[in-house]
Design a protein around this nucleic acid. Sequence first.
DNA 1: TCAGTAATGTTATTACATAACGATCATGAC
DNA 2: GTCATGATCGTTATGTAATAACATTACTGA
Lengths: 135, 135
Amino acid sequence: MAKTKIGRNENLVLEALRDASGAPRTAYQLLETLRPEGLKAPLQVYRALKSLSERHLVHRLESLNAYLACSCTHGEGEEDGHALVFAICDGCGTVREFADPALGERVKALAAETAFTPRFAATEIHGTCADCRAG
Amino acid sequence: MAKTKIGRNENLVLEALRDASGAPRTAYQLLETLRPEGLKAPLQVYRALKSLSERHLVHRLESLNAYLACSCTHGEGEEDGHALVFAICDGCGTVREFADPALGERVKALAAETAFTPRFAATEIHGTCADCRAG
DNA sequence: TCAGTAATGTTATTACATAACGATCATGAC
DNA sequence: GTCATGATCGTTATGTAATAACATTACTGA
Ligand SMILES: [Zn+2]
Ligand SMILES: [Zn+2]
Ligand SMILES: [Zn+2]
Ligand SMILES: [Zn+2]
C-alpha cells in the first residue's frame, strides 16, 4: 500500500525543507515561507508534515519543535530499524542526521532486556559543531 | 556552586511528579494538581521544572511535552555522560528511564567521528511495554 | 540598616498543534 | 455517463505549551 500520491502541499513543504538544507524549520516558519505559494493556514502545513513524516521524507526534531528534510537512505524505502540520530548544534542551529546501526542495535538490546517492544526510536544530541567550535 | 536552595514551588512540583511514579505529567497537569497548594500560573510550574531539570531531578520528555521525576543515579550528583534513555509505552503511557553507558559511549564515538562536541543526548524509544503486550 | 540577590507572583502574549466542518477532485464500478 | 467512494484541500475556531515583561516579597550578609 503505497500511501497514495504526493500532493501539491506536500511537495511545497518538502521543497521548502530541502532548500533549508540542514536547518530545521518550524511549521509556522514554513507557513510564512509558503504564503506566496498560496498556503494560508497552519493545518495545511501540519497535514503535509504528517504525510511526509509517514513517508520518512522529513523528520520531526522533538527537542526543537521543528522539522528537517531527511538526508538518509531510509527515504522512500524500508525500515533501518527506525533508530534515528540527530546532532544538533546549539550554536548555529544546523542539524546533521545519521543512520547509525550500532546505536539501533543497542536500543533493540536494551528493549529486549526489559521485555519492551520498540516501534521507533530517536536520539537527539545537543552540542557544538566543528565550525562553531573553530569560531 | 550548589545552585542555591530548593524552593517551595520546586518541592511541590517534584513531589507531584514523584507521586505520579512513572507517569509523565505536562506542566499544565501539574498546575491543576497543585492549585490546591496555591499555584496559579503556568510560569510558576515552568520555573520549578527548569530548576529541577538543571539539578537532574526531573527530565523533560521531548516527544510528549511532558516531565518525569528522575529515577536514576545521576540525581544529585555528577554527569554520567548525560546520555539518557527513555522507553515510552504508547499503550499505557508509562515511561521507564535507563542509564545506559553503552549507548552513551556510542553517542560519544559518533560525535567524535564528525568533530561534533556533544553536551547532552537523549534517546526516546516508543513502543509497547510488557504489561500492555500481555493485555 | 540597607543594599544585593534569589524566589515568587501576575498579566499578557507568543508559539505550537489539532478539532470540526465543508468543498473539491480524482477514481473506478455500474 | 453517473454516481458512490475516498483522498485532498480549504477555513474558522480552539486547545495546548511556553515565555516575556514587570512587580513584589524574602533572605542574606556587609
Ligand atoms: Zn532520515
Ligand atoms: Zn554550529
Ligand atoms: Zn534521570
Ligand atoms: Zn504499557
